[in-house]
Amino acid sequence: MSSREAFLTRVKQAVADGNRAGAVPSLPERAGVGYQGAGSDPVQRFIAELANAGGKGYVVSDVDAVMQTIQSIVQAHNARRILLSRGGLIDQFALPHKLKDAGFDVQTLDDMQANPQEDFFHADIGITNVHRLIAETGTVVMASQPNEPRSVSLLPPVHICLAERSQILPDLFNLFDLFSPTATPDRSLPPSCLTLITGPSKTGDIELKLVTGVHGPGELHVIVCG
């Protein structure tokens, strides 16, 4: 018997030995249990929860305001190298051009050569789109794909992301239903990496003192447009 078969035989036997007759529970349906929702104003709820987690939210109405917000964050950090992911609002607002014109050292995925990792490690600020926002928890959802590498929202010390109002989901359950074979039979597979970001990187390992930015970005800025 292969080790896999022996393994499974053992587990199967243990399952049978431990199952009490008549007490094997069926897979429970959740119905509405645990759904919190976002109340009447999901944008405000998102911004408030994000602030609780230590992030900063901005609600802006046009592209000029987006640029202003980004510029003030960049200047506050004296940042030089800005790393941008591709597509979505970033392209729609022509952010790479605008930031270049404003005199910043801009690195897009198109500029990258054979070894993008070095560029990722050296950036001061990463700007991304988002997959979704979750109002209940103040969470930014990133889905990995060719236009949205995992590193842009991870390696630079500051992460700025752009979202549309319509990307806000009320509750964590809504996100998982999007990829769930059970809830949505014609859904897409989950991406290779779906990341839920709730605030800046945190550690309390020394005397419980909260320190941000030990591994991931120490600052998280979310600009909600529209």
Binding site: A53, S144, Q145, P149, S151, S192, L194, T195, L196, K202
Partner: peptide, 22 residues
């Protein structure tokens, strides 16, 4: 007591074609 931990990383398989990291 956090609503979620800061990072929840949900991994479904290795890097897919076209992705530059992972």
């Amino acid at each position: 007591g956090q609503t979620l931990s800061v990072y929840t990383t949900i991994i479904t398989g290795p890097r897919q074609p076209g992705e530059v990291d992972g």
